[in-house]
């Protein structure tokens, strides 16, 4: 017997089992939803927009089209412009696992950023221009936008969440004094 890769296989317990690799690829083409389309347009313009629930006042970035807390639908009328600077509330340093498609090879930072008023949380952001070991909670940061001609939102869809690196490369320290990290212990995620 041979398997589809042409390797000898066996059904008896005497010889080792031969394994075959079977890669599969599936393609999905998702239609980008209306709020995310507007979010993309704003990113091309180096702006961050969000939706704010009129009831609980929570700010959702990227906009979802609804507030899951109050179960009300949100639309353009609930959209607000956000600041592109804020504070690192928490972070981790990830040692990359080399799975298929992983491009990172060195330890990298993913930080939660609380944007200045009117607020909004951006999670899993890169922190640039500073050694990984020096990143800390309470650090003041500002957005690093890709130059206008290089800005790209093709990767941004309904599911990409806060992965914005095509347009918003990450955040860098502003050099302002740190804010007290304890004040943001409930602004992690």
């Amino acid at each position: 017997m041979t398997d589809t890769a042409g390797n000898a296989t066996t059904t008896s317990g005497d010889e080792p089992v031969t394994m075959m690799e079977y890669f599969m690829q599936l393609e999905y083409s998702d239609v980008v939803s209306a709020p995310v389309m507007r979010f993309r347009d704003a990113l091309m313009d180096a702006r961050l927009i969000a939706q704010q629930c009129p009831k609980c006042k929570l700010v959702y970035v990227p906009p979802k089209g609804y507030c899951p807390i109050d179960t009300v639908e949100l639309d353009e009328r609930n959209e607000i412009q956000l600041a592109d600077r804020g504070v690192v509330t928490n972070y981790t340093v990830v040692t990359p696992v080399q799975y298929y498609g992983q491009k990172e090879t060195e330890p990298f930072v993913r930080a939660s950023i609380l944007l200045d008023p009117p607020g909004g949380m951006l999670i899993l952001q890169d922190v640039l221009d500073i050694p990984v070991a020096e990143v800390r909670a309470g650090m003041r940061v500002e957005a690093v936008w890709a130059p206008k001609g290089e800005r790209d939102v093709d990767e941004i869809g309904n599911r990409s969440g806060s992965a914005l690196e095509g347009s918003l490369r990450g955040f860098r320290p502003t050099g302002e004094p740190d804010m007290p990290a304890e004040a943001f212990s409930d602004k992690v995620w």
């Binding site: 981790t92 990830v94 990359p96 696992v97 799975y99 298929y100 498609g101 992983q102 491009k103 990172e104 990298f108 993913r110 899993l124 599911r159 992965a163």
Partner: peptide
């Protein structure tokens, strides 16, 4: 590959 699955096939997965 669970790491790949958790990352949704993208680079920079956190696990």
């Amino acid at each position: 590959n669970a790491q790949w699955g958790l990352a949704g096939g993208r680079s920079g997965g956190m696990g």
